[in-house]
Amino acid sequence: KKYKIKVYVKDKKTKKWKKIKEIEVDTKEEALEAIKKLPPNYEVKIVP
């Protein structure tokens, strides 16, 4: 079972969220580790 991490950042001009990358991992633990490495201003969604 794979997890997709969708990473969004808020556009300063439009104030809208835009997706900047998608990370695919195998476990939820890996997903949480990957999220920890991202800057705090990123919004993250984990999709099972």
Rank of each mutant, 00 (worst) to 15 (best):
K13Q: 08
K16V: 05
D11T: 06
I20V: 14
E29F: 08
I46V: 10
D26E: 11
T14A: 05
Y3A: 01
A31W: 08
K45L: 15
V44R: 02
P39E: 07
K10W: 15
T27F: 04
D26H: 10
V7A: 03
V44G: 08
T14P: 01
E30R: 04
V44P: 04
I35Q: 03
V25M: 04
V7N: 00
K19A: 04
L32C: 13
Y3T: 02
D26C: 09
I46Q: 01
L32P: 00
K21M: 15
K10T: 04
I20L: 09
E29S: 07
W17I: 04
A34S: 06
K18L: 11
E33H: 05
E24S: 12
E33N: 11
E24G: 09
T14V: 02
E29V: 07
I46H: 02
E33A: 10
Y42E: 03
Y8C: 03
K36E: 07
K36G: 10
I20C: 04
Y8D: 00
I20G: 01
V25F: 14
T27Y: 03
V47I: 13
K4T: 14
E29P: 03
V47H: 08
K45A: 09
E43N: 13
W17Y: 08
D26I: 05
Y42H: 08
E33K: 08
T27V: 02
A31I: 14
L38H: 02
K13A: 09
L38P: 03
L38A: 03
I23T: 04
W17N: 02
K37H: 13
D26V: 05
T27W: 02
K4S: 06
K36W: 03
D11H: 09
K28I: 14
D11W: 04
I35C: 06
K37V: 07
K6Q: 13
K45T: 13
K1G: 13
I35W: 04
V25S: 03
V7D: 00
V25A: 07
K10G: 02
W17T: 02
E29Q: 12
K28T: 07
V9W: 06
K45H: 14
L32W: 14
E29A: 10
V25E: 01
L32T: 07
T14Q: 05
E24T: 11
K4H: 07
I5H: 00
P39Y: 10
E29C: 11
V44S: 06
E22K: 01
I46D: 01
E22F: 03
K37G: 12
P48D: 13
K4M: 13
W17F: 06
I23K: 02
I46M: 09
V9Q: 09
K18N: 06
P39W: 13
P48L: 15
E30M: 07
K16Q: 07
Y3S: 01
D11N: 11
K18Q: 08
Y42S: 07
P39F: 14
V9M: 12
K1L: 12
V25G: 01
D11M: 06
K37E: 10
K2S: 11
K15L: 07
K37R: 13
V44L: 06
K12I: 10
E33P: 01
Y3G: 00
K13H: 11
N41W: 13
E33R: 10
A31D: 00
Y3F: 14
K15M: 09
A34L: 14
E24F: 14
K13N: 08
E22R: 00
A34Q: 11
P48E: 14
P48R: 14
